[in-house]
């Protein structure tokens, strides 16, 4: 039970600190990595929601099938999300590279895309 509230608190901390990093970021690459931290907060939350105290991993290759397994649905959600997150961050990094080429700066406060 205590792990549940601890994980909830860690998820909130990661979310808030990640958004703080995004708000105060002076560098678009730094901003991308802050977004990774924000996304990690959802993983921590989902892990805690899916976990059952005393549960085993939902893989029955070596153990007999049992009721005491943790929730596989939430793990499936996280699994695809992690891979998709990486490609989305790659897209953002590609945008960052292009912004640097076009405007000559990585500082989001100084980027003025309307000017070309």
């Amino acid at each position: 039970m205590i792990y549940f509230y601890a994980a909830m608190a860690v998820a909130a901390w990661l979310f808030l600190v990640g958004v703080y990093g995004i708000v105060t970021s002076r560098n678009l690459i730094h901003l991308c990595l802050c977004l990774v931290v924000v996304q990690a907060s959802t993983y921590v939350l989902l892990t805690a929601v899916g976990y059952r105290p005393g549960g085993i991993a939902p893989i029955f290759a070596d153990v007999k099938q049992t009721d005491k397994a943790v929730d596989p649905v939430i793990q499936a959600l996280m699994l695809t999300d992690i891979v998709v997150e990486a490609t989305v961050v790659a897209l953002l990094l590609a945008l960052t590279v292009q912004i640097k080429k076009k405007t000559g700066t990585l500082n989001p406060d100084k980027v003025n895309l309307m000017r070309g």
């Binding site: 939902p58 029955f60 290759a61 397994a69 596989p72 793990q75 499936a76 959600l77």
Partner: peptide, 16 residues
């Protein structure tokens, strides 16, 4: 035997 894979590619295959 891997319930996570079963969810990903069968039970909730449309999401994936």
């Amino acid at each position: 035997t891997d319930a996570v894979t079963a969810v990903n590619f069968d039970f909730r295959g449309f999401d994936t």
